[in-house]
Simulated assay, not measured.
Amino acid sequence: MAAVILQRYRERRLLRRNRIFRDRTHPFDVFDDDVIFAKFRFRRQEILAITDDISVDILLSKRMGSLTPLLRVLITLRYFASGSFQDVCGELIGVDQSTVSRTVTRVTDVLLRQVPNHVRLPNGKKQDAIKTKFYDMSGFPNVVGCIDGTQVQIQAPTQNEHEFVNRKGYHSINVQVR
Rank of each mutant, 00 (worst) to 15 (best):
A49V: 07
A49P: 00
I50N: 07
I50H: 05
T51P: 02
D53I: 12
I54P: 11
I54K: 11
I54N: 09
S55F: 04
V56D: 13
D57R: 15
I58C: 10
I58T: 12
I58E: 09
I58Q: 11
L59S: 15
K62M: 09
R63I: 04
R63Q: 15
R63E: 14
R63L: 14
M64S: 11
G65E: 06
S66E: 14
L67Q: 08
L67C: 09
L67P: 05
T68M: 10
P69N: 12
P69H: 13
P69D: 12
L70T: 13
L70V: 09
L74S: 06
L74W: 04
I75R: 04
I75W: 10
T76Y: 00
T76F: 02
L77G: 10
R78D: 03
R78F: 02
Y79D: 04
F80E: 01
F80D: 02
F80R: 04
F80N: 01
F80A: 03
A81I: 08
A81L: 06
S82Y: 02
G83R: 05
S84C: 08
Q86L: 13
Q86C: 07
D87V: 13
D87K: 12
D87I: 11
V88G: 00
G90C: 07
G90W: 09
E91Y: 13
I93L: 15
I93F: 05
I93H: 02
V95P: 08
D96E: 14
D96K: 13
Q97S: 08
S98N: 04
T99G: 04
T99M: 13
S101Y: 03
S101V: 04
R102V: 00
R102D: 10
R102E: 07
R102Q: 10
T103N: 10
V104L: 02
V104P: 05
V104G: 03
T105Q: 12
T105G: 03
T105E: 12
T105M: 08
R106V: 05
R106N: 15
R106S: 14
V107C: 06
T108D: 01
T108C: 14
D109S: 15
V110P: 00
L111I: 14
L111P: 13
L111Y: 05
L111K: 09
L112I: 14
L112S: 11
R113M: 14
R113V: 03
V115A: 11
N117T: 06
H118Y: 15
H118G: 00
V119K: 03
V119H: 10
V119A: 08
V119Y: 08
V119Q: 03
V119S: 02
R120K: 13
R120T: 10
L121V: 08
P122C: 11
P122Q: 09
P122M: 11
P122G: 03
P122E: 10
N123A: 05
G124Y: 02
K125C: 07
K126C: 01
Q127R: 14
A129S: 05
A129R: 10
I130W: 01
I130K: 00
K131E: 13
K131A: 06
K131D: 01
K131N: 12
K133C: 08
K133S: 11
K133P: 00
F134Y: 09
F134A: 06
Y135S: 06
Y135P: 01
D136I: 02
M137H: 07
M137S: 13
M137E: 03
